[in-house]
Design a protein around this nucleic acid. Sequence first.
DNA 1: GAACGTCGTCGAAGCGTTTCGACGACGTCT
DNA 2: AGACGTCGTCGAAACGCTTCGACGACGTTC
Lengths: 344, 344
Amino acid sequence: MPTISDVARAAGVSPSTVSYVLSGRRPISAQTRARVQAAIAELGFHPHAGARALASSRTNVLALVVPLRVDVNVPVIMQFVTAVVTAARAHNHDVLLLTKDEGTAGLERVAHSTMVDALIVMDVERDDLRLPALRGLRQPSVLIGLPDGAPGITCVDLDFAGAGAQALRHLHGHGHRQVALVGPSPAVYQRGTGYAGRFLSGFTEVSAELSLRTVAHPCEPSAAGVRDCLARIDADLPGATALVVHNEEALLPLLADLRADGRRVPQDLSVVAVCPRDVAVGMPVRLTSVDIPAHEVGTMAVEAAMGLLDGRSVAETTLLPPTLVERDSCGRPGAGSEISSSHC
Amino acid sequence: MPTISDVARAAGVSPSTVSYVLSGRRPISAQTRARVQAAIAELGFHPHAGARALASSRTNVLALVVPLRVDVNVPVIMQFVTAVVTAARAHNHDVLLLTKDEGTAGLERVAHSTMVDALIVMDVERDDLRLPALRGLRQPSVLIGLPDGAPGITCVDLDFAGAGAQALRHLHGHGHRQVALVGPSPAVYQRGTGYAGRFLSGFTEVSAELSLRTVAHPCEPSAAGVRDCLARIDADLPGATALVVHNEEALLPLLADLRADGRRVPQDLSVVAVCPRDVAVGMPVRLTSVDIPAHEVGTMAVEAAMGLLDGRSVAETTLLPPTLVERDSCGRPGAGSEISSSHC
DNA sequence: GAACGTCGTCGAAGCGTTTCGACGACGTCT
DNA sequence: AGACGTCGTCGAAACGCTTCGACGACGTTC
């Protein structure tokens, strides 16, 4: 492995000059620069990351903390991850993957040993134990999610309250007056993950504002859980003409159940999903959906981290506005009754 | 941030002594060790990763290359990832996440700049372009998958040929003589990912050996793709009494389709799936399945990497034997016909 | 033409570890 | 009692880079 001194010797300059060619921190004449670059190419020189980190106290590595729990939506997480990795690479950074189950210790380990320049933390809970630890670190951090109170840490997330509101307003606009919310799994609520509650509160507010009849039930993301949840909805709000489904995993079993039940979407029942675009499009019925912009959120989180590292001022909280895309799963209530099989 | 010298001063010893306490590479008296450890704890000392890497040429970081393509099975990938991260942590290593789309360049970047001690590469194709690059690195690598030929690189994977054979033998044992294979998406075959072909070849061999009538079709993992695939099977092998499904994403739509069609599992049609256990169990019908042991494979890959780093000798190829678990989706052909709705 | 900037380069001092050789202090063996 | 190991510790030299101050060599400016 050639070192910077080897390159310097080959180019007939000093090591510092090579360093300045690499970093661009001081002007170097075009000739010298060319010679140095030729030497670098010829020798196949790559600066030693550790040496660099030691001398510059910059690692060009970001830590990303992912949940490995199974009750979270794996494909969505993967979208976040790829977005973060891609965005980080665009800023010449790499990503060190930590799992949430290492908890506070993991964060402190990588931060204290100076393995990373900044941390991005997913699946943040409303009152997350890791927050105090993050505040104590020398490195800045960015949360994907929105804990309670003013966290004093940069946060990026979808505006889930707005999303809940928008989904319901859309159905109201189509004439629906009785709507049920199929929420995430009970475990998500119990854990105190903020987005579930925020979505629900947006939903509930609009429900009150427009005087709608609504119910909301969490839903275990299994065939049985879905059946259960639908049964409860039928019991509590038998006149429901539309469903808002904030539970990606439940989507497919739910649609299957409805079909097996002879309830057609959208003729007998309208559905608005909250999920990534590709999921909405891949369903048997192309679903009208509020997008979960994992890619944007992940990218913004990295941008925020870069901003913090560069000393730029960064908004403490960034909530991305929801966008609802109309597809084929929403109709007017009762529109399909004349052709539909009856349903009590 | 305290340094090793600060610790040494506080404990009244030299920095090298502190280092030896930390690494255990030389004997240190119990007293001294205690004093040093007290000082470490008191000052909250954490060795600087970069300095360590520079001095020892060991980073304690593994690179993990994941595919971020969407035609691969995201939850399974995530299982590999968590297995690798967990196993790596158990060996006091961290994981740097690379995406496959950085290709050869990404591998060389992290390897040449000495960011990692070893590389683990997922989604290896039969004739993978990255293989020559990996061979050229100073760091060892481990493949998850099995390329063609003797790769000269350590490989770990499930024995997919054995899995295909086992699935078909199981159905044969239940009396099935006409069986269709629902394969992965065509993209997987085209890409040359080895496991699809290996599974198919195991399936085909047993088919010939037992003189069964079989067909095999790839299957796009969408509602439409599944319908399509089932239609083709009905056309090519109308007497099929069982399905082997080597396509996790197709599973749910497929079962939904069958149900909508009035074909009950297992009374009218038996199904053997190839998928992780939790997926098989979470389906509307608990599926008899050949397990995809992502956790084991990921762990083994890390163990292999550690072995290589420690200079132990490691088998070049490790194929994990498949395990089939019986659940509720296999019956005898025709067993349910007396109660079933007729089906041509 | 003297004073002053700017530009391009160099030398050297770190950055915080690990590791190798050295070296007392002891115990053990003959 | 002398030679010889072993044990526990130290000092110093890397490891490969960045960065700061310095310093010629040139234009500019009055």
